[in-house]
Amino acid sequence: MTAKRQILDSIRGSLGRGALPPSRRAELEEALNHPHAAAVPARGTLPHPEQIALFMAMCVEMSASVDRVASKALVPAAIASYLASQNLPTRLVVAPALQALDWAAAPLLETRFGAALPIDPVSVTPVAAGVAETGTLVLCSGPDSPTTLNFLPDTHIAVIEAGQVVGGYEEVWARLRVDGRLVPRNINMITGPSRTGDIEQTILLGAHGPRRLHVILVDEHGG
């Protein structure tokens, strides 16, 4: 008997039944198409302007830094000024999704588009959403947003549009489902920079992932 068969039989034996009847199986499978959220915290159901304020405040609480710009056109300059203020390298690896930004506006930045290499000091990525509840960024893998950008470089700069900020996590899942199916291969929920408490329960930032997470919120679309 195969291992799979034996494990399933053992489960059924312990539960005192055979395989579920097809009608019950169909019912349970259909239920997956109507997922329901158990208890969404009230703090995730604020009006949108307050959600944005909560999102920014939670990001800071989770040790990320935040900046806010009026339009997408201002993002490269905001990146340049953040890196200068922190005395960080200006060599960027940027998600292909952000290739259309006006990089010429910040001539001091050296940009490359693609996945991250171990030598890349700074990455810039878009996000799929930001969750106000806990200041969590949601990023989806794909050719436009390679996963290595989120973890390899010392500094991760994430660009989020105001319209991408939602209250609770469930709103993101609803947005990501296409025809009822979740599409991305990897979904990364990121809440602050990398950290560890493994030495004497002292929390230190920058364990293996980015030492710094900088969030730039863009108020308007376009630009």
Partner: peptide, 20 residues
């Protein structure tokens, strides 16, 4: 409030992916 990284992984890298 939430761990720094929560990651959902579904399958190997896809045709167009640059990493994974």
């Amino acid at each position: 409030e939430f761990a720094a990284y929560t990651t959902f992984s579904a399958g190997p890298r896809r045709a167009e992916d640059l990493d994974g």
